[in-house]
């Protein structure tokens, strides 16, 4: 079973966990959300700053396991600086990977470090951990866009 363990805890995931990118709450934002995983209590407060149709910043403060922390860090890398539409496509791709029960082949072009989460999809109990920040981001972005118009 330790092979499975290595598939879950890819080196990339542990690196992001130890040195998360973009962590901390920053001042410029249009929407802030707080999401929790009720079964385990993992929490994230996440802010989105959208500027002229581009994701200008995603800042967050999170408590949780390595998977949920690393996934927030990867989210930051993948969406900041991208047009909102494109970022939404990435979110959708990540969601499909996570919900694919290990059958979806991840596209490295789109998901970059996010492909490391392919192993997580085989652990149903951990899928929610990986998705916590992504769901929070989607929610916050929808709110930020409402603010804009």
């Amino acid at each position: 079973m330790s092979q499975d363990l290595d598939a879950l805890y890819q080196e990339i995931i542990l690196d992001h966990y130890k040195n998360p990118h973009g962590k901390g709450l920053r001042d410029a934002f249009e929407a802030e959300v707080h999401h929790v995983n009720p079964t385990c209590g993992d929490e994230i407060t996440l802010r989105v700053h959208v500027d002229g149709g581009t994701v200008a910043d995603v800042s967050y403060d999170a408590l949780g396991c390595s998977i949920s922390q690393a996934s927030a860090s990867v989210l930051y890398d993948l969406v900041v600086g991208k047009p909102v539409d494109e970022a939404m496509v990435i979110q959708e791709e990540f969601l499909q990977l996570m919900q694919g029960k290990g059958t979806v082949e991840p596209d490295e072009e789109v998901l970059e470090d996010g492909i490391a989460f392919a192993g997580v999809a085989k652990f149903p109990a951990r899928v929610k951990c990986a998705l916590l920040s992504w769901m929070a981001w989607k929610d916050a972005t929808a709110r930020a866009l409402k603010e804009e118009d």
């Binding site: 499975d4 363990l5 879950l8 385990c40 993992d42 396991c65 390595s66 998977i67 951990r126 951990c129």
Partner: peptide, 13 residues
């Protein structure tokens, strides 16, 4: 180490 990760590693054993 977060408790989930502790439990996961223990489960692998």
């Amino acid at each position: 180490v977060h408790p989930h990760d502790v439990a996961q590693v223990l489960d692998s054993r």
